[in-house]
Simulated scan of single mutants.
Amino acid sequence: MYKILIVEDDPTISKALQTLLENWDYEVLCCKNFKDIMSDFISFEPHLVLLDISLPYYNGYHWCATIRAVSKVPILFISSASDNLNIVMAMNMGADDFISKPFDFTVLVAKIQAVLRRAYSFTGQTRAIEHTGVILNLNDTTVSYKDQKIELTKNDFRILQMLMENAGKVVSRNDLMTRLWESDEFVDDNTLTVNVTRLRKKLEEIELYDWIGTKKGMGYWIE
């Protein structure tokens, strides 16, 4: 069953869309937390996103760019702001189609079906971990925050993945070293410190300052 995420501020429209699409046997989730749409995106793992331009806090272009930083999932804009400038901007941001409001439900469903058919000739779903707006993409070992993205080394990625998988908990140095070198053999403890220091400096490039904390004598953690 295909899953569709609806990002629409008007509850009347989002409810009508949900009812329509569920009648077509799609699994549907309507976003309610417009401050953090990526939480729903990561947890729900939709096959397609219906996205309005006018939204609280951040507009649809912002969320389109944020999703595109980590995923190839199809994005269909639905908006009454259907002038040529907005349509061109949406397509340039990575949208797959633009549907003007008010729209005919039959046409909308036909467009959704066509986009899904085209899109899922590619394999695999986006695999990612999200915490407080930080997105670790498990497919290409990049980390994104506030529309900024950096590539990680193998060691950077392994450290950050383990810390984000255990967010809110202290991860011991021994556990990190085992994950890092995938071995129970002795590794110089200072080598882990060097790797964490390097990772912290790299995260500062995307404005993540002091994001990895230290519990003296125990290990590291992310709040």
Rank of each mutant, 00 (worst) to 15 (best):
M1R: 08
K3A: 07
L5C: 09
D9S: 15
T12M: 14
S14G: 08
A16I: 06
L17A: 07
L17C: 07
L17S: 06
T19I: 15
E22D: 07
E22M: 12
W24I: 00
E27V: 11
N33F: 05
F34N: 06
F34R: 04
K35Q: 14
K35S: 10
I37C: 06
M38T: 12
D40N: 14
F41K: 01
I42D: 01
E45L: 09
P46M: 07
V49H: 02
V49Y: 00
S54R: 11
S54V: 14
L55M: 05
P56W: 09
N59W: 06
C64W: 06
T66S: 14
R68V: 03
A69P: 00
K72I: 07
I75D: 02
L76Y: 03
L76V: 15
S79Y: 07
S80K: 11
A81I: 05
S82D: 15
D83S: 13
N84I: 14
N84D: 13
L85P: 00
M89H: 14
A90M: 06
M91N: 06
M91A: 02
N92D: 15
A95R: 05
D97Q: 09
I99Q: 08
T106M: 11
V107W: 01
A110W: 00
K111G: 01
Q113F: 05
R118Q: 12
A119M: 04
A119E: 13
T126M: 13
A128L: 13
H131C: 02
H131E: 09
H131N: 13
T132G: 02
G133K: 07
L136W: 11
L136T: 10
L138W: 09
D140H: 10
T141F: 10
T141A: 12
T142W: 02
T142P: 02
S144K: 02
Q148D: 10
I150D: 03
L152I: 09
K154Q: 12
N155C: 01
R158V: 14
L160K: 05
M164L: 15
E165G: 08
E165W: 01
K169H: 12
K169G: 00
S172T: 15
S172W: 10
R173V: 10
R173A: 13
M177Y: 00
M177V: 12
L180W: 04
W181L: 00
W181I: 00
W181T: 02
S183W: 07
E185Q: 13
F186Q: 12
F186D: 09
V187A: 08
D189L: 08
N190I: 10
L192T: 05
T193R: 14
T193Y: 08
V194E: 10
V196A: 03
V196E: 03
T197A: 13
T197C: 04
R198Y: 06
R200Q: 15
R200L: 01
K201I: 02
K201L: 11
K202S: 11
I206P: 02
I206A: 01
E207I: 00
E207R: 11
E207Y: 13
L208D: 03
W211K: 04
K216Q: 13
M218T: 13
M218W: 11
G219C: 09
G219A: 08
Y220N: 05
W221R: 01
I222P: 02
